[in-house]
Amino acid sequence: MANLRKKLPPLTALTAFEAAARLSSFTRAAMELGVTQAAISRQIHVLEDDFGFPLFRRLHRKIELTEKGRLLSAAAGDAFNLIADTVADLRSEGADDELAISATISFSHFWLLPRIAAFSRAHPEIKLRIITQDTRTSIEASDVDLAIRYGTGTWADGQAEFLFEDEVFPICSMDYLQAATPIRTPQDLVGHPLISSDIDDPTWTGWDEWLAAFSVKTAKKGRGLRCSFYTEAIYAAMNGQGIALGWSRLVSDLIQQSRLVRLTDASIQTRAAYFVVTPARKPKKESSRAFIEWLKATAA
């Protein structure tokens, strides 16, 4: 064992290197490991000093593995995957069947949690763990069994199965609607406070794209509240702060409960869709199959 330790590089540095090499980014590696970018950079330097040669080429706004870096990346990736699979098998022996499900805050809050009790009633033997996060992490580098994602359906870390598309239209509270001037067309929205959310996803539909679809122009510095998350935008709309964009699948329950009101018949189809994603290199659990079948039936 002592000889083995002498042959191995510092394991903390090797972990940072494996993540940076796999993600081709110090920044994304830092996000995945929950540390700063500077910490990742320091660990890479520790490893390079230990080896006595560079593992990355530092280019303008990107990094690139050297030939020796590629060899180490392949070996480290295989070793870490083998350890992870073995640990997962050991943990599952004799344990309850727990299904870890990842979803965004808005999808979990507005669609999944209001419906998931039906799955638990049908499958009381399956223990559920909901992981709510807007930051997307590798499904293969975590203990997540399946993830519900919005996008194009092409992700390198998993196999995607289509769930549903969506449509987007303006919504507000009943109190706001009664106090506002009549809103019957997209042009009537001009001048109202439009609630937006900061979502770093080019496939997400915001106000600029929605209004442009109906040839409506608004002032660049229009009125309206700007929120960090879509859930905040929806709650702001329910509290009468103005008008938000409602994604039909997410706000349908709130409309049925009269907590929100749809404005105009105008809507646009989303450019992307919702998918359920399972790890590409891990066997699919029976509980995952049951949950996906329930998801598709409920979505339909």
Results as ranks from 00 to 15, higher is better:
4 L>R: 12
9 P>R: 08
12 T>R: 15
15 T>E: 08
15 T>R: 08
15 T>D: 11
18 E>T: 15
19 A>H: 02
24 S>W: 02
30 A>Q: 06
37 Q>R: 09
43 Q>D: 14
46 V>H: 07
46 V>W: 07
48 E>Q: 01
50 D>T: 13
52 G>H: 00
59 L>W: 07
62 K>E: 06
62 K>Q: 08
66 T>L: 01
66 T>Y: 01
67 E>P: 06
75 A>L: 11
79 A>N: 06
83 I>E: 02
83 I>P: 02
84 A>G: 05
86 T>I: 10
90 L>I: 04
94 G>Y: 13
97 D>M: 07
105 I>D: 13
115 R>A: 11
119 F>V: 09
124 P>I: 02
124 P>A: 00
125 E>T: 11
125 E>Q: 13
135 T>K: 13
135 T>M: 09
138 S>R: 10
140 E>I: 07
142 S>G: 14
146 L>G: 05
160 A>T: 13
160 A>P: 04
163 L>R: 07
164 F>R: 00
167 E>D: 13
172 C>H: 03
179 A>L: 14
187 Q>G: 12
188 D>M: 03
202 P>K: 13
204 W>Q: 08
214 F>T: 05
216 V>S: 01
222 G>M: 10
225 L>D: 01
227 C>T: 05
228 S>G: 12
229 F>K: 10
238 M>C: 12
250 L>P: 05
251 V>I: 15
254 L>T: 11
255 I>W: 10
255 I>E: 08
257 Q>S: 07
258 S>M: 14
263 L>K: 02
263 L>W: 07
272 A>T: 01
272 A>H: 05
281 R>I: 13
281 R>N: 15
281 R>K: 13
286 E>M: 13
287 S>L: 01
293 E>T: 15
